[in-house]
Design a binder for these strands. Structure first.
Lengths: 203, 203
DNA sequence: CGAACCTTTCAAAGATTTCTGAAACCTCCG
DNA sequence: CGGAGGTTTCAGAAATCTTTGAAAGGTTCG
């Protein structure tokens, strides 16, 4: 079929070796676990294990997916910078290569996706705390209860700021002192328990 | 407080304040993002924001879920230790409380779920590498290509071991030197490029 | 011991998410 | 220009994952 480049030797087109397939699948699972579609991982892995760039068709063959599915998948990978598009002079088709610096990929996702999430969460928590205070001032809420909820929200806020810091440090390659972070989190835990009730660490 | 309803004051039963609801939703999203069902997060959050233990029924009311859904959800939360079951003397019903040490929860999930995943991945990679070598020795595979794939698999292996180390350090509260880790990952990146072809780090 | 009340289980219904095939779009070549 | 790939879009089909209602299972109290 695709006579030209992408696959000079026959082995490359036959159902890939078991080894290769296993890797592709495991990467797929990994990515899925990470919140991406499984096929994103599988697709990236196929490219990653290929010495030459592959066409959409090659991918469709190896992954047993339709052309449209490949288009979608590859599109998303391109957006994340996990794959690059290449063109070969005499050939109309698009060729794809995997970005090989996994570290770069990981940090990119962390800083775009996860960080956004954490920020969003933090923002919501702030808003919630404000709303609560407003209600409290207006006397619409049982005071004791409001105080309790407020404390819990504050703990969540602290946590989210810790998370944000961790992510930030991680992404920028700084050193993380997890011990210190944990201390903060735990200290707060105790705070809450004073009011809430549980004091003992348990099992 | 104890006997009849877990919620002595009316406010506790009425559709929770906006503030509370917002928090519940945001935690739900967070958990969903983390690979749990959204309702696990929502359920935990409701308990976390409640001064008193709640019954399955209370939860069903506030979360708009059926009794069976609550049972499932709470069951899973119990398994993760995110919620504890309590009983009140004169009452047949089960009451639930949220585990408040979020740090404990996070590390538990990391060490049980994520670490297992990473280990599993590592194992698969080893197996794949072995299979590849076997095929190579048997001469069933194009040698150059086999070498290439082998290198890539090795890089993935390195990565996974780095991940395992990071997780381990994180969980046990040690200090992580992300910088060092990254260096390892990158050094390897260069290694591969020698053989593969890409030399330039890019944008 | 048996009735009352909860909780859990499980097959089926309901929602979502993902994939596909057909058609619309491009782009490059002749 | 006209056409032959190749790629993207999109609505519907298919596969998955969730939630529910009903029934079975357990406990507690009288």
């Amino acid at each position: 079929m695709s006579r030209s480049q992408s696959a000079p030797d026959s082995t490359a087109l036959t159902p890939v070796f078991d080894a290769e397939r296993e890797v592709v699948e495991v990467v797929g699972r990994l990515m899925e676990f990470w919140g991406f579609r499984r096929h994103l991982g599988r697709t990236w892995a196929v490219l990653y294990l290929s010495p030459e760039p592959l066409t959409a068709n090659d991918l469709a063959d190896r992954l047993q997916l339709s052309a449209s599915a490949i288009s979608l998948t590859v599109g998303e990978l391109l957006q994340w910078g996990a794959v690059k598009k290449t063109r070969v002079p005499g050939d109309r088709r698009d060729f794809f290569v995997a970005e090989t610096s996994i570290w770069k990929l990981v940090t990119r996702v962390l800083s775009q996706r996860e960080l956004a999430l954490v920020r969003d969460t933090a923002e919501t928590l702030v808003r919630a705390a404000a709303a609560l205070d407003a209600g409290r001032r207006a006397g619409q809420i049982d005071a004791a209860r409001a105080r309790f909820v407020r404390k819990r929200i504050d703990k969540l806020r602290l946590l989210s700021s810790v998370g944000e810091r961790l992510l930030g440090a991680f992404v920028s390659g700084r050193t993380l002192d997890v011990g210190a972070v944990r201390e903060v989190a735990d200290r707060d835990g105790i705070d809450v328990s004073v009011d809430g009730d549980e004091g003992g660490a348990d099992a």
